[in-house]
Amino acid sequence: MTMPGAPVGDDDLAALVDGRLTPERRAAVEAWLAEHPDAAARVEADRSQRDDLRARLAFKVEEPIPSRLRIANIRVARRARSLSQLRAVAAAVALVALGGAGGWVAKDVAGTGQGASSSPVAFVSDAVGAYRTFVVEIAHPVEVRAGDEAHLITWLSKRIGKPLKAPDLTGFGFRLMGGRVLPAGAGAAAMLMYDDDAGTRLTVYVRADKGAETAFQFMREGEVGTFTWLDRGFGFAVSAKADRDRLLPIAEAVYKDLGA
């Protein structure tokens, strides 16, 4: 902290307004203000504005907390969302298997590959990394083209004994281009790629992930926006060069489609 005898500065005046000076320093600053009426008037104005602001906003802290903001209710809402995803696991297993069937391996693509128990941060960076790597790919953006989808999906559905589908995003102008498998630690991740008429590409990334369940989370890295969520042992990420408002309904549709 400033020495008691040091010259008075703007920081002292601010700290005086905010009541953050030591008693000795406060005395020194007040003595200085007695000889500088302009500065003293400014301090007085700042103080009264701060008090005014507090007074005008005081009612808000006195209000009872609305029930929707109770932590217990926020948790219930988050769980309800997860429960509606009961069948997402089956779809996710199939998507990972879809990748596995392709058998394409590129260890360096998925970054550090912390794998199954990675943090959400690592999961997102792998998903965004995969998006960035393949979204610029002209010749081979996908490993298995959408034309082969029916064949693959039928085969996979038979193998796991559950019907499977790739999320239908045509309502948002996105058509399925195809998919590929990526390494993810000890396991594999599946990536489905979509594009729209403007050439915007969007990826749906799924992999096994033991992290705790989460609600939708939005992250932005440069122009790339990503919604992620973890649910029952799987992590999901939807990425595109799109803003939050455009991406959110798409992520919700993926959520519903993989859970339906």
Partner: peptide, 13 residues
């Protein structure tokens, strides 16, 4: 509400 949801989802972090 968004703040609390985000805080809960990152509570462990």
């Amino acid at each position: 509400q968004d703040t609390l949801e985000r805080a809960l989802s990152r509570w462990a972090l």
